[in-house]
Nucleic acid binder design. Sequence first.
DNA 1: TCCATATAATACCTTTTGGTATCATTTATA
DNA 2: TATAAATGATACCAAAAGGTATTATATGGA
Lengths: 107, 107
Amino acid sequence: MDALAVKSFKALGDPTRQQILALLAEQDMTIGQVVDHFDMTRAGVKKHMKLLEVGQLITVKAEGRERINSLNREGFKSIMQWIAYFDQFWDDKLDALASLVEQEEQK
Amino acid sequence: MDALAVKSFKALGDPTRQQILALLAEQDMTIGQVVDHFDMTRAGVKKHMKLLEVGQLITVKAEGRERINSLNREGFKSIMQWIAYFDQFWDDKLDALASLVEQEEQK
DNA sequence: TCCATATAATACCTTTTGGTATCATTTATA
DNA sequence: TATAAATGATACCAAAAGGTATTATATGGA
């Protein structure tokens, strides 16, 4: 089982973190810029960012005294790959349904 | 923002629950059958199942004194839709990169 | 009817999580 | 060189989550 996927999913299971990602989809931001969009202390936001980083949903790049946060495709990819495993399930289920319908039609 | 997606993501952010889903992808099961696959009390497993149900990743159907648990496509769909929003981001980024390369080539 | 089985519900405990407050560190700039 | 700005790190607190134990309820079968 993909251990990263658990961390990515966990990171996404919070409305604040989802909002942060939506902001970063518009443009890269420092933590300070992100904080301006929330009624929360810097330390609080920082913790969320850390979880997003652990889940590989964002990357941080040092630039002088600032840290630029950007979306990271890795986390998104690991999630989609995990979900893809279940696509097979739905395909099989639809196939089974199709066979059943065929059998009914032949009666 | 899709409120369901938060619950679905939260439900998936736990290794036990991911394993339960993998079991249900093989075949529908009662809670008792699921419990047999874990070193955990029935009540513990039950709590996980409840979260999976809230996240619309499984459905429960009463059948006599048993409850049959099956995968539910709704939760998976809401997650993929949420992720899809970010696909646009990657597309844009790749487009921007392509333009940049073109500009460089013209120099 | 009586009993075993499958489940639900609740109370309780420990750990993790979401958040604040506070202090230390690095870097840009007057 | 001071000083302000941007950040990192830590201690602390309340609430939520993960788990057990226990009790109660419904259903199938001898």
